[in-house]
Amino acid sequence: MTRAEPAASIAAEATPGSDFRRRLLDAMAEAVRERSYRETTVADVVRNARTSRRTFYEHFDSKQDCFIALLAERNSETIQQIYDAVDAGAPWRTQVRQAIEAWIGASQQDPTITLAWIRDIPALGEAARQVQHDAGEAFINLIQSLTATPGFEAPGLHPLTRQMATILYGGYRELIAFTVEQGRDISEIIDVAVDTAIALVGPRYEPPR
């Protein structure tokens, strides 16, 4: 079985645009790092991008629209990094670690934005909920795809069902957020995340009769 390729984009907002669009997305990320999303204003974004309000509104309808576009892009990039990091020909336990290390590594690149994605997006209305839903679907599909290769077809292994993949996605997401909020290094959760995935996928322990 071959591994499915990731979707080209989680949402339309993640599609690369003009140089100004790129500058505005980067400026939004900078403003969120400096002030948090709630405190960020369009003026902050425009100042960081060294452009005008007119240019901002040529690319985005609102501060929220720009923020959602940034998060959609980051999630697409994270999923691609995970796919790229996993060697489908490696032993299955190695593949599990490769995937989780790539996920944590992507989260570490910009932990403030990672936390903003988890904590701020649920309160931003229908458009944000759609992006959140699409991101969840993409991560769940990713997890199932990564465990649907020949390396995971050995006797006794259990390729993840959708429900199991959903539990892993939600649990890892919350654990990452909690660790960032505590001001701790996200890499410290790698081993427990790997052990959890291996426990779900690996052979079940059956006590002797």
Score class of each variant (00 low, 15 high):
15 T>N: 12
151 G>H: 00
107 S>T: 13
106 A>Y: 09
147 T>A: 06
25 L>M: 11
36 S>M: 01
195 D>V: 04
20 F>S: 14
101 E>H: 08
131 V>K: 01
72 A>N: 01
111 P>T: 11
154 A>D: 08
179 T>K: 06
207 P>D: 09
8 A>P: 03
165 A>W: 09
11 A>Q: 08
109 Q>H: 14
123 A>H: 15
123 A>V: 05
116 A>M: 11
77 E>G: 07
100 I>A: 02
120 D>K: 08
8 A>M: 02
106 A>L: 07
96 V>G: 08
67 F>Q: 01
151 G>K: 10
20 F>P: 00
152 F>C: 07
185 D>M: 04
26 D>S: 11
19 D>P: 03
177 A>H: 00
145 S>R: 12
42 V>M: 09
164 M>P: 00
21 R>V: 00
116 A>D: 08
90 A>T: 09
110 D>N: 15
166 T>Q: 15
189 I>M: 04
183 G>Q: 03
105 G>T: 02
56 F>D: 07
20 F>Q: 15
171 G>V: 03
132 Q>F: 14
26 D>M: 13
168 L>N: 05
128 A>E: 07
33 R>W: 08
22 R>H: 12
166 T>D: 14
71 L>H: 11
171 G>M: 06
202 G>A: 01
129 R>F: 10
86 V>R: 05
122 P>S: 03
42 V>R: 05
24 L>Y: 12
197 A>V: 15
6 P>F: 12
69 A>Y: 01
2 T>M: 11
80 Q>H: 13
10 I>R: 04
136 G>T: 13
85 A>M: 04
189 I>F: 06
161 T>M: 04
127 A>H: 07
97 R>I: 03
73 E>C: 02
16 P>V: 04
113 I>W: 05
15 T>F: 10
188 E>K: 04
159 P>G: 09
182 Q>I: 00
178 F>W: 09
203 P>T: 09
18 S>W: 07
190 I>L: 07
124 L>M: 13
68 I>H: 05
192 V>N: 04
63 K>P: 08
65 D>W: 02
67 F>I: 01
168 L>H: 14
149 T>A: 13
31 A>G: 09
43 A>M: 01
137 E>K: 15
78 T>C: 13
40 T>D: 01
54 R>N: 12
114 T>R: 15
114 T>S: 15
86 V>P: 02
165 A>N: 05
89 G>H: 11
18 S>D: 11
188 E>V: 12
90 A>C: 03
182 Q>W: 01
51 T>Q: 08
69 A>D: 06
31 A>N: 08
1 M>E: 05
179 T>N: 10
163 Q>V: 12
13 E>F: 09
151 G>P: 03
7 A>Q: 10
18 S>A: 07
168 L>V: 15
145 S>Y: 09
129 R>N: 15
154 A>H: 12
86 V>K: 02
25 L>N: 01
36 S>K: 05
6 P>V: 05
33 R>H: 11
163 Q>I: 12
127 A>C: 00
86 V>T: 05
17 G>P: 02
38 R>P: 00
146 L>P: 07
172 Y>L: 15
178 F>Y: 13
49 A>S: 03
141 N>S: 12
200 L>V: 05
